[in-house]
Amino acid sequence: MPRIKVLQLLEAFSFKKEDTVLHKLDPRSKIAFEIIVMVAVFFLSLTTSIALLFFILLLHYKAKTLDKVKRSLYGSLPLLALIFLLNFLFSAKASLLERAAYSATMALRLVILLLAMGVLFLTTSPEELSAALVKMGISYDIALALILTIRFIPTLAREAETIVDAQLSRGLELEKGSFLKRLRNMLPILIPLIVLSIEKTDAVAASMESRCFGAVKKRTFYKEPTLKKADIAFVGAVILVVAALCIISALGLTPL
């Protein structure tokens, strides 16, 4: 079993503060962008999907997040290949070209969805995101659960790595042996991890109490999300682009 590289995987969704237009947008505009893309993607042909992909990559370029996105793309290549293959083999379409085009579109949809999510998560801090969610009517407790999860995943990943190191140092075999044995060998890693997580939860809860969590019914937010002209322009642009692509696709104006 390869060493856990969870931290690297997570980098694709980890926020970093930059000074770009996208970072300054109200999270709600970005959420709207997500929803529009997620719905529209099912109505697009191959060519228009590619066009949408380029549009999203352009957004990443403007947000200076292209590097991070590249890494997660490489990571998802095996999955994309699998989707392509499965669709290709089981598709009911007639010609070979049509089957290839359809399968590619399916795979592309996944890429588009991932990249679109990346636009939101890479340019929005969890705190801003939860402030936006609360403003949209979602209870703060749920939003807080989201923040804490994102916040503690790197910590738990590091603990897991240390646990693996400690147990390997006692002769634990993770790479040899029957499947059943290897499964059983996960116990010395899972048990300390679970116990540590529970203890941490306790400590975190005590700390949060000590920071006045729950003091007032309606807590305020330091960075209150506000819709500005840039947000309206952004959402407007997204609607235009996506609508255009959908129309082009529906009218069958593209070859594939």
């Binding site: 603990e159 646990i163 540590l196």
Partner: peptide, 13 residues
Amino acid sequence: VGLIFQNPNHQLF
């Protein structure tokens, strides 16, 4: 080489 880590809770199970 016996390596003893800092936090015993990382190995108790």
